[in-house]
């Protein structure tokens, strides 16, 4: 299908984009890589009056190693994120989750910021940002503010980014020396997660000393499995990892859909958490 007609504005800076959003009012729509937005426009599920393209704003692109953290511009493509040496060595779980998104063509254009701002309940990067306590820098006409991951994801397709605001960058605390893994469960190539589990684990003397775990597609927003994180401390065997992972379904009330009913989702949450942690920790 052909999208409904709209005006197009190519923004050259964050200020430029903010001004275009303010001018466009309610029906203005920001575009990153367009890999969620163009399909939506094509199906006429959304009909903005003006599309503000921020895909060529230099300050939104790039990955900076800032000592204790890695700062990723919102407009950095999935392809750039998953191939970045600093991301691969200090944020393996993010590199893994990003490599599992869609397919090479979509990863060439889709951006980390676009995926996080879109916040599809099935998306693979939001649970990583939540588990790793990423910090989101958001720009508005009155200046910039920082939002913690725990406050960023507010509902399906709903985040702390207001309609007149722009997500500028995401800062991830570096996890040097940690193991990481993203366990994605789906039925066919290129398909979305039925459930995905992001795990990062720090080992000390053969035992798990610290763990961070986030799940996708078990509710409207990504889920932090805090009870599993606590129960894993001290675990060194697969039996202990599996026992701790039983808590992955604590406080979950997932939905049923064509892929999985509620009981099956709860089962998958437990099994895939154990699998993901075991891989991240190198325990078999």
């Amino acid at each position: 299908m052909i999208p409904v007609a709209f005006d197009y504005k190519k923004a050259s800076s964050v200020e430029d984009a903010l001004a275009a959003l303010a001018e466009g009012g309610e029906d203005a729509k920001l575009m990153g890589g367009g890999q969620s937005l163009v399909p939506v426009l094509r199906l006429r599920l959304n009909a903005p009056s003006v599309v503000v393209d921020c895909s060529s704003i230099p300050e939104l692109k790039g990955i900076k190693d800032e000592g204790g953290k890695i700062l990723i511009g919102a407009g950095t493509t999935h392809h750039a994120v998953m191939n970045d040496p600093a991301v691969k060595s200090s944020l393996k779980v993010l590199a893994d989750a990003t490599a599992s998104v869609a397919d090479p063509q979509i990863r060439h254009r889709g951006t980390l910021g676009g995926a996080l701002a879109h916040s599809d309940p099935r998306a693979d990067q939001p649970p990583v940002a939540l588990a790793l306590d990423a910090e989101f820098t958001i720009a508005g006409t009155t200046g910039q503010r920082t939002v913690a991951a725990a406050d960023f994801f507010q509902g399906p397709f709903e985040t702390a980014v207001g309609p007149d605001e722009i997500l500028v960058s995401i800062a991830f605390p570096k996890l040097d020396g940690w193991g990481g893994h993203y366990e994605k469960f789906n039925r066919a190539a290129q398909a979305w997660s039925i459930i995905g589990v992001a795990a990062a684990v720090r080992m000390e003397g053969g035992k798990i000393a610290e763990a961070r775990i986030g799940l996708t597609n078990v509710g409207g927003t990504p889920h932090r499995a805090s009870a599993v994180e606590q129960a894993l401390v001290g675990a060194s065997s697969i039996a202990e990892v599996e026992a701790a992972s039983m808590h992955a379904s604590d406080n979950l009330s997932p939905f049923a859909d064509e892929d999985a009913d509620v009981d099956y989702r709860l089962h998958l949450a437990r099994v895939l958490t154990a699998r993901s942690v075991a891989r991240a920790a190198g325990i078999s």
Binding site: M1, Y8, K10, G34, Q35, V38, P39, R42, L43, V51, D53, H79, D103, P104, Q105, I106, H108, R109, Q190
Partner: peptide, 25 residues
């Protein structure tokens, strides 16, 4: 109509993209 099939793939500045999921502008 869903950006899935990839038959529209072209190289833009040397990398593959789905030309149905990008605006000409």
């Amino acid at each position: 109509d869903t950006s899935n099939c990839g038959t529209c793939t072209v190289l833009v500045d040397g990398v593959s993209v789905k030309s149905c999921s990008m605006l000409a502008v």
